[in-house]
Computed example of a mutant assay.
Amino acid sequence: MASNSSKSSLRSPLAHARGLGSAKHGTEHWWGQRLTAIALVPLTVWFVFGVIGHLGADHAAFVAWMKSPFSAVMMILTAGVVFHHAHSGLQVVIEDYISAEWQKLAVLIAVKFVSFALAAACVLAVVKIFIGA
């Protein structure tokens, strides 16, 4: 029992009264955001140069580019990382600016579903082009 009281004495009276403590997930989230941002640098460069390289090209040329296994994988990676990064950033904003717990939960769930649905639609589009369906 003495160990419990010594642990609780390290917290401020207000934190003890509220039952607050470290969530211990902020650093992990911060690193995840930074890693996806770093991953987006080469993916975005690849995407921009790919699109610029096809300016003025017809639909068939663009489809031929997307049928390349390298281009298809890069486009799927780009879509996945973009929507994961966007979801992660929106989550931080939502958690910071929506105070009502039920509203926060509802918006977080909606953002997660929309992010997943948009990423899945992008992947499906690339797969359809790649297999020629």
Score class of each variant (00 low, 15 high):
W46P: 06
P42C: 00
M75T: 15
S115F: 00
L14S: 10
S8V: 08
A64W: 06
A72E: 03
S6H: 13
A106G: 07
G50V: 01
V41P: 06
A61H: 09
A23F: 05
A64E: 08
H87E: 15
G26W: 01
L55V: 12
A117R: 10
S5D: 12
L105F: 13
M1L: 09
H54Q: 14
A39E: 03
P42Y: 02
L90G: 10
L35C: 05
K7M: 14
V127D: 01
M74W: 04
A86T: 12
A133T: 11
L124H: 13
G32S: 03
S115I: 00
V107F: 06
C122D: 09
R34V: 13
A17G: 08
K24S: 10
K112M: 13
I98S: 06
V48E: 01
T78M: 14
T36A: 03
V45Q: 02
F116R: 08
V123I: 15
G19P: 07
L35I: 12
G26H: 02
A86H: 09
F130Q: 04
M66P: 04
R34F: 08
F70G: 09
I98T: 11
V114D: 02
S3R: 12
W102E: 15
M66L: 14
M74H: 02
V114C: 01
N4E: 15
A100I: 09
M66R: 06
G53M: 00
A23N: 10
A23T: 07
G19W: 02
F49K: 12
R11T: 10
G56M: 04
L40G: 05
V92T: 15
A106T: 12
S6I: 08
A57Y: 12
P13S: 13
P69G: 00
I38V: 14
A57T: 10
G26Q: 02
G50H: 01
S115H: 01
G26M: 02
H16F: 12
I129R: 02
I76E: 03
L40M: 15
M74S: 10
A121L: 14
A64D: 09
H59L: 13
S5K: 10
P13V: 06
G32V: 01
A17R: 09
A64F: 04
M66W: 05
R18G: 11
G26E: 05
G56C: 06
F113A: 13
E101S: 08
S115Y: 00
Q91N: 12
A61S: 15
R34Q: 13
A64G: 15
E101L: 09
F49L: 15
V123W: 06
P42A: 01
A60L: 07
A133F: 14
V114F: 02
Q103R: 11
A39Y: 01
S5P: 04
S8A: 07
A110S: 11
E28W: 11
M74V: 08
N4D: 11
I94V: 15
I131E: 05
V126K: 00
G53F: 01
A106D: 05
G56F: 04
A61E: 15
A15Y: 07
G21W: 05
I76A: 11
K7R: 11
H16P: 07
K24F: 13
M1D: 06
I38E: 04
L55K: 09
H87G: 14
V73F: 09
